[in-house]
Design a protein around this nucleic acid. Sequence first.
DNA 1: CGGATAACCGACCTCTTCGGTAGGATTTAA
DNA 2: TTAAATCCTACCGAAGAGGTCGGTTATCCG
Lengths: 157, 157
Amino acid sequence: MLFSTKAEYGVRLMVELGRQPGSRPVSLGSVAEAEKLPLSYLEHLVAKLRKAGLVTSTRGAHGGYRLAKPAEEITMDAVVEALEGQIAPMECFHDSPEGKVLCSHESDGDQACSTKLLWMRVQGGVTKALAGTTLAELVEFSSHSAAKPTATVGSAA
Amino acid sequence: MLFSTKAEYGVRLMVELGRQPGSRPVSLGSVAEAEKLPLSYLEHLVAKLRKAGLVTSTRGAHGGYRLAKPAEEITMDAVVEALEGQIAPMECFHDSPEGKVLCSHESDGDQACSTKLLWMRVQGGVTKALAGTTLAELVEFSSHSAAKPTATVGSAA
DNA sequence: CGGATAACCGACCTCTTCGGTAGGATTTAA
DNA sequence: TTAAATCCTACCGAAGAGGTCGGTTATCCG
């Protein structure tokens, strides 16, 4: 599998937030209820999203989460990266400070390692797909066919 | 990480085989030597490649492995899939017998789950990148810049 | 024939991550 | 002041990653 359920659950969480009018915060409990996901696990995931500046939180009773930006401005590369960590096809891949792609096998001189071409293309394909998809698209897409349960704004359960 | 070192090592192994003239089999030992990879681990990987019909083996002294097809006809989606298993962005994704993409969250009716659009695009990007790259390209690419150690055809060490 | 070489095979082992639980502390609206 | 919510840290079982090891079989060469 390319990604774990962290990305899956996290994206669903974001979509759920994206469904809401936007003014009132949505409690994690209601999201967990709507998506049938374990609340305590979602807490871990939403923490990453918050640290990445994708959602904001308000504590206390009637608190909850809401999107930090309009859904049209949230691209999925940021979401997935917040949840899964840096998107690289392979261990040895990492972005250098100057934005270049490095492969740690190239330490001996700057000769290309035989797999670099391949992983570059793969990474390109993935980031293009992720960066080219906005949260708004997913919200729209999922609300089409679905009489899906939506998180209620009030208290859960 | 999208892929593990299984794909990395396996691809390097294939490239190493691709460098050879083609008639004589290359021993795993010499590949391990050239790429500085553990021989016993490579054995597991090459077994998968063999079962997938990508390499053929000849046993006994002066035995070894060679490509089952010319490098131009080997695309990397087959290689990576043989090593890593089915290429799917997410646990819930699997190809149905008829070639359709399924998402197990859709069991209740055929309504789209909110993440399907995203994962479809990601998978498309990956498979396009993999299927669009041949082993021959990688062999060519790696031999350009490199005074890389090549597996000797004879005995290792 | 008898080594030596190498492919084959399966059991095992350690370490990390995944997916999730538990318990508590803190903030805030009613 | 109490209930609802976020926040935080620790833990835990299962699974996979990345190897290692020992042995078996097949084949060439002298």
